[in-house]
Computed example of a mutant assay.
Amino acid sequence: MKNNNKKFILIPVLSSLVILLSACSIIVSNHDDSKPEIKTTISNQGFNKLAVSVAISDISVKYGDKYKVEYAGPKNLKPTANRKNGALTIKQSAPGIHHINGDPTITITVPKQLLKDVTLSTNDGDIEIENIATTNSISVDTNDGDIDITNLKAPHGKIDTNDGDINISKLISKNGFKVNTDDGDIKVSDSTFTGYKLDTSDGDIKVKDSSSSSTFIENKNSSNVLTASTQDGDIKIK
């Protein structure tokens, strides 16, 4: 009787595990010819708000001559793009197991006009922002990847990765930024912050000519404070 009870208990546990795995994205990095690579434009509509939420893709947002959203990667992982009331939403779901060769990439080109809200999120991929300006907040998040930002103008925002480095150059802000990585280095240069609240659990902190082993605080009550933390990595401010 005891053995039978164990069997009946094991069946729903295994069923739950199968359901859980089917809802997750599992990546196998070898090419599968049944899922061909494509390069295509998925949108060329103008927008003033941008929200990107994808499962397995690098995201690049950069200045260019005209609005364009391009995708390169497996055909079955092609994201969707929808525009409503001036807001462009890009989504990609990828449950199950996926054979990929290289990293799928979504490249978003924006003319030199101010965007309002910008939200970029990928579960597995790097995020790059270059020569972009926003009137409101910006949120950048990746679960597994690096974040590189060059020449960004935004009043405030949040930048986060669980596993990756964060590199920021020429960030102009007014009301501060929150930057975090659980495992990686944070480097910030040529930016307009007037105060700092920096913390690392296992690493070094260097702010221009000052150094600290774990915590650095300067002008924390100013209006434009960089709050940055890493569990395992260094923080360098130039």
Rank of each mutant, 00 (worst) to 15 (best):
A81L: 12
A51V: 12
L21D: 02
S53L: 06
N82P: 02
H31P: 00
L21P: 02
N48K: 14
D58G: 10
P79Y: 15
Q45M: 13
L50V: 03
Y71E: 06
I147V: 01
I90Q: 01
H31F: 08
D148M: 03
Y67A: 11
T40C: 12
K39H: 08
K91M: 02
T122C: 09
I106Y: 01
N85P: 02
I38Y: 11
K78V: 15
N48Y: 05
I90H: 07
D146P: 04
K7A: 14
L120Q: 03
S25W: 05
H99P: 02
I27M: 12
V110G: 13
L17H: 01
N136T: 11
F47T: 05
T134F: 03
S60E: 15
I138S: 09
G102P: 06
A72D: 07
V69G: 07
K116G: 04
A55C: 05
C24Q: 15
K68A: 15
N44P: 09
I149M: 00
K39M: 12
K78P: 05
Q92W: 05
K112N: 06
G46F: 13
S43T: 10
G86T: 08
P74H: 07
V118Y: 14
I138Y: 12
D103M: 15
I19V: 14
V69M: 14
L17A: 06
A87D: 08
D103Q: 15
N85T: 10
I108A: 05
G102N: 10
D32C: 03
K39E: 09
S57Q: 13
S25N: 08
I59H: 04
L77I: 00
A51L: 12
